[in-house]
Design a protein around this nucleic acid. Structure first.
Lengths: 226, 226
DNA sequence: AAGTACGAAATCGTATACGATCACTATCGC
DNA sequence: GCGATAGTGATCGTATACGATTTCGTACTT
């Protein structure tokens, strides 16, 4: 629903996809000034569809728009990070629990393969690839999610975090190793058809653990409680 | 974040608020054809800000927009209803659990008073007032929610459901009585500082019970499991 | 030298205008 | 009589144009 690529051919969609890609890929970093007329020129369209695209991105939290001032790529301060991670913890937990009964042996195998690749990345220290594989891993888990609304929320959260790539938030020592282990734990729960409750809790913890690791680093308090 | 009224003075905001209000209040029923030029004329602005408003409402699920065809007030079929209620169950559960520790005795008293009024509405059969009070009740619970993202998701869900007022979905015999009892149960949990887990589960059940009641009526299966 | 007031440039917000696309209807052919 | 098709009207999509607002630099005052 959020990032369906939508090859509508509409210039508006075109602008939306283009700007969104540039933000997520990091071509536009947080704080980057998005001048409507400039983007319009770059894309060969007029400002109206660009404006529409920008406002859509604003609604998704990727862009900050100030009236009569302009749009900038949304940064994410510690508070926002906390909100986003906490929300993700909840919606990912739900998405995983809902998807679990629909995940087959083939999916599990695929996810496990991805996870082993991630483990290799840790040895060879390849964080870029690690991040991509991490996405793949969770995609396998979520792709069967029967509730598209929830899936959409998950995607929004991921997009919101994507702009953080290579930012200070991402590297917490040792966290990656734990993450891979937690992945394996999740797979075990799913393949043994554990209770939805258990799966949801595990998925939540997987996310909040990353948040906690960050919070611990900045000693601000913990949120793993819930 | 979603319905902050935003008296920005911008025509765009103005159009957004106006159309949104008309949808939520039921002046525009599902299926109603939203013709940009007509709305623009009604509001005394040009079509551009109206278009922006409509697209924003589309993103929130209140409006359906077909390219080169036009916008209509989004209906909500049983499937959509299921998705929305399921999602609400999850985000409301989280919102309640997060809010609980911040809810004081005064809030509890206020909520309890509202709930008693709701009980009266049942005797006098005043569904309109009942619905409004129900909103008030939950507002008390949510207003302290420390995570605005989650609160926003709750509001979106409520808005999405608002257009259903007086539609077939709303009247399930006996459900209202149970609902009031569940409210009291929730308040008890909160004032005894029950575990976040317990509160979350209760809040979820409160929502999914309504969904289940609907599903039972249309014998389609149940979702209370989670 | 620092602060303030003014003015110009940049950018957004909206109106208007026109081209593109779709739905609908009436007509034509079978 | 029924289905296909061309024409017409309505509506959207985008471009262009202009007014409104903000920001920033500069000159002036104290």
């Amino acid at each position: 629903m959020t990032d369906v690529a939508a090859p509508t051919g509409s210039k508006s969609e075109q602008a939306y996809a283009a700007v969104k890609a540039r933000i997520i890929d990091g071509d536009y970093s947080p704080g980057y000034r998005l001048v409507l007329s400039k983007i319009a020129e770059d894309l060969g369209v007029s400002v109206v569809p660009v404006r529409e695209a920008i406002r859509r991105l604003e609604a998704e939290g990727l862009v900050k728009f100030e009236r009569n001032v302009g749009a900038t790529v949304a940064g994410i301060d510690p508070t926002e990070y906390l909100y986003t991670m906490q929300t993700l913890s909840i919606v990912e937990g739900a998405a995983t629990a809902l998807s679990a009964p629909l995940i087959g042996a083939a999916d599990i195998a695929r996810a496990r393969a991805v996870n082993e690749e991630m483990r290799e990345c840790l040895e060879h220290f390849d964080p870029v690839r690690f991040t991509r594989l991490n996405q793949d891993f969770h995609s396998v888990l979520f792709e069967h999610c029967p509730n598209p609304h929830i899936l959409d929320l998950v995607h929004r959260g991921w997009n919101r975090l994507a702009s953080l790539r290579s930012s200070t938030f991402r590297f917490v020592p040792g966290r990656a190793h734990d993450s891979v282990d937690e992945h394996e734990g999740l797979l075990r729960l799913i393949e043994t058809a554990a209770a939805a409750d258990e799966i949801e809790k595990a998925a939540r913890r997987h996310r909040s653990a990353t948040l906690d690791a960050y919070l611990a680093q900045t000693n601000t308090g913990s949120l793993s409680a819930h």
